[in-house]
Amino acid sequence: MEIGSNAALVVVDVQKGFEDEGFWGRRDNPAAEGNIAALIDRWQETGRPVVFVRHDSVRAGSPLAAGSAGNAFKDFVEERRGKGRGRELLVTKSVNSAFYGQPSLDLWLTGEARGGAADGQRAQIVVVGIQTNMCNETTARMGGNLGYDVLFVLDAMHTFDLAGPFGWTATAEELTRATAVSLHGGGFARVVSTEDVLGGAAGR
């Protein structure tokens, strides 16, 4: 797998509020945090751009509410911010898509990822973080619609069991699989593994 020299790693909502099991319920993929950390490290070592996205929830009672302890990035993310050789951006949002945050992710990427893309080549973004089927999926879908080459690193993210309509429920694993099939099969993104991406981003 080839990872562009200006491919941006988009780290979505890796915040302490998601550790509240009483609020969110059971999660999948306990390896997510370790894989996210490894990808941030690789991006920073190689001088590629990194985007840290934070969800400032406006929903009453949310563990991610702006100004709350849960709004902060998890420690392993916070301690890595500002440590790379490449450019870095903090995007804050209150909806699912990182492309609807502030400052504009698309405008920033226009100068970063697109600026390093060869003629006729789509700029790359690599999506990791929380939650697989919510903000990660929405960001990936919108990125695909905007013309980015989106890599969706399935084992560097996680989600939670969820109740839906008609008494239906889905486990975190079922939601992860459905998201992967929809994004990959629908052409919004390429669903890949951390190992694939680390190998492709080994040098710059």
Rank of each mutant, 00 (worst) to 15 (best):
S193P: 14
G17E: 05
T139E: 13
F99V: 04
A31C: 08
G17T: 12
G22M: 13
K16Q: 07
G186D: 06
F99H: 00
A8T: 00
G22F: 06
A31R: 15
A7M: 06
H55C: 05
F160A: 02
R27M: 04
I36W: 03
V191Y: 03
P103D: 14
K93C: 08
S94A: 15
A8H: 01
T110G: 15
K83P: 04
G67P: 09
K74T: 06
T132Y: 13
V126G: 01
V91T: 11
V77C: 09
L107V: 08
Q131K: 14
V50P: 01
S97R: 01
G115S: 12
G17R: 10
E137F: 04
P103H: 02
S62C: 09
T176A: 15
A163D: 15
T159A: 14
A156W: 04
F152P: 01
N96Q: 13
T110F: 12
A170P: 07
G67L: 12
P30F: 04
M1G: 07
R141A: 00
I3N: 00
Q15P: 04
K83E: 04
L39I: 04
M134F: 11
A98Q: 04
W24T: 05
P49C: 03
N96R: 13
S68Y: 11
M134K: 08
L154D: 10
A189L: 10
H55M: 03
D161V: 14
V181A: 15
G22E: 15
D13V: 10
E79V: 02
F18H: 07
W43M: 01
L151P: 02
D56L: 13
M142Q: 08
D149M: 05
I36P: 01
D119S: 11
